[in-house]
Design a protein around this nucleic acid. Structure first.
Lengths: 116, 116
DNA sequence: GCTAATTGTTACCTATTGGTAAGTAGTTAC
DNA sequence: GTAACTACTTACCAATAGGTAACAATTAGC
């Protein structure tokens, strides 16, 4: 039926790509993970300040998504006033190759586009 | 004002992450690039068959986006009937680190989720 | 002459995304 | 007592993404 057909390995890989894409969907998730990756921990307002342009509602929703997928943890600390810390799980940290590659590629792409 | 502040390097990196995320936005772009990466070239219908569930309208739009951002090329070959070949540009190929990392991570994530 | 394939386009619809602006509830500093 | 900080939530709205179904224009095979 189809002349070219991809191997089992390729198909598994493509499904992996799709899974990752789905988990990192939306405008902000990679930025959040990137920020947490650089800094270890961040509180809600710190994240909001570092991620330029994100609305609190949206940040809140993205954090919930990431928590549900076990990429970050949310820890409420009983301080005055209450502070909340967000941190990558080992799962989330294991995204570093993806995030780093995205960062490097993006920096290079921007440089290239500037030159032209 | 803000106790924790990220270095110039980190900020550039975060911007790179965001740029990459924006270029790869949507449900299908990484899948398309992944497929092209594995196979070199693909025709429209071949892509459609290999990317499970994508509608022709959507595929068409995604391909236009990718072409506009110079990640793929579109070549019309004067055969009977006309065939169209899509291929990664050097720019697009340079995304391999990102795409590979996404593929590998996704495969591992799925395995982990299966076990639990 | 009918069917099927090529690469798309068009019209239409809906669900989701993402944004704004305001509010909540508690605490602290001036 | 009022402003400001914490971490959010709520109501509302607009734009977009993405899907379905049908169609276009050409050619080939039966």
């Amino acid at each position: 039926m189809d002349k070219k057909s991809l191997s089992e390995d390729c198909l598994r890989n493509l499904r992996g790509i799709k899974d990752t894409q789905d988990l990192l969907s939306g405008k902000w998730k990679t930025s959040i993970i990137g920020a947490l990756y650089h800094n270890g921990k961040f509180r809600f307002m710190e994240l909001k300040r570092h991620i330029d342009g994100i609305a609190p509602k949206v940040l809140s929703k993205e954090l919930k998504d990431l928590e549900m997928n076990r990429l970050i943890t949310r820890k409420v600390r009983d301080t005055m006033p209450i502070t909340v810390e967000y941190e990558l799980t080992p799962q989330g940290k294991s995204l570093n190759k993806v995030i780093n590659a995205m960062g490097e590629w993006g920096v290079r792409y921007r440089e290239l586009m500037m030159k032209k």
